[in-house]
Simulated assay, not measured.
Amino acid sequence: MSEPFRVGFVTGSTPDKWARAWRERRRVPLELVPVLESEQEIGLREETLDMALVRLPIDREGLHCVRLYAEVPVVVAGVDHFVAAAEEVTLADLTDEQLVRPHASGWQPDASQLDWPPMSEKDAIETVAAGTGVVIVPMSIARLHMRKDVVHRPVTDLDPTEIALAWRIERDAEDTQAFVGLARGRSANSSR
């Protein structure tokens, strides 16, 4: 039996559809490997992963990168928070809030911030559920960690985050291109 084709995926990305298509069309086994966003490049660079679904930005030095889709940024707050009454919010609406986890954009509320310890998205949403502050995450993360005691609303003036497929330039083999084809929507009968 051949070595499995290893594809990492960050929290919130959804490789299932492509994994199903791979298993239907390819003889090489596929192994999906969850990776933390903070470690999404490590498996590629250390060659323990053949490819990875990553959340941009990443250091593209030595990597191919194909953008797949954008993710809407949302604010997550407790159900009693004022954002629960809104359909969407802007950063100006959040300027007086406690941001329990830094946002990748670097945006900070104007309010003096508490010294929050580093925490995962799940921990941040649990903190928000307790009625303390807000967190801004991609919608896929908010949905993954959805709870009855929180709500999420789009933040209209933040740029979307993007999910991309990345792999080492020297790993640009037939199986790599086959997976790229699946992710880009090529059918079993189409050719490059």
Rank of each mutant, 00 (worst) to 15 (best):
S140L: 01
V83H: 07
E87P: 07
D50A: 05
A52F: 11
P73H: 07
P118H: 11
R153F: 04
R147T: 12
V150E: 08
V79L: 13
G62V: 11
R55G: 02
H64A: 08
C65F: 00
L99S: 02
L56P: 06
F82C: 08
V100L: 02
A111G: 05
V134C: 03
M139K: 14
V100D: 00
A104C: 02
S120N: 09
R153G: 02
S140P: 01
V74G: 05
V128A: 13
P117E: 13
T132G: 02
V128P: 05
Q113R: 01
T132D: 08
A77P: 11
D80F: 14
E97M: 08
M139F: 08
H152A: 10
A84T: 13
T127F: 06
A52C: 14
R60I: 08
L68R: 02
L53S: 07
L49W: 09
A84D: 10
D149K: 10
S105W: 01
S120T: 15
D115R: 09
V151A: 06
I141Q: 04
H152G: 04
V100M: 01
S120A: 09
S140N: 05
H152S: 12
I141K: 01
T127S: 04
K122G: 08
V79H: 14
A142Y: 13
M51L: 14
D96A: 14
A70T: 04
M51E: 08
F82P: 15
E121F: 11
T90V: 12
G78N: 15
E87M: 09
Q98I: 05
S120C: 07
A86R: 15
R101L: 11
A111K: 09
P102T: 07
V79R: 15
Q98M: 11
T95H: 11
D50H: 09
E126W: 10
I125C: 09
D96L: 10
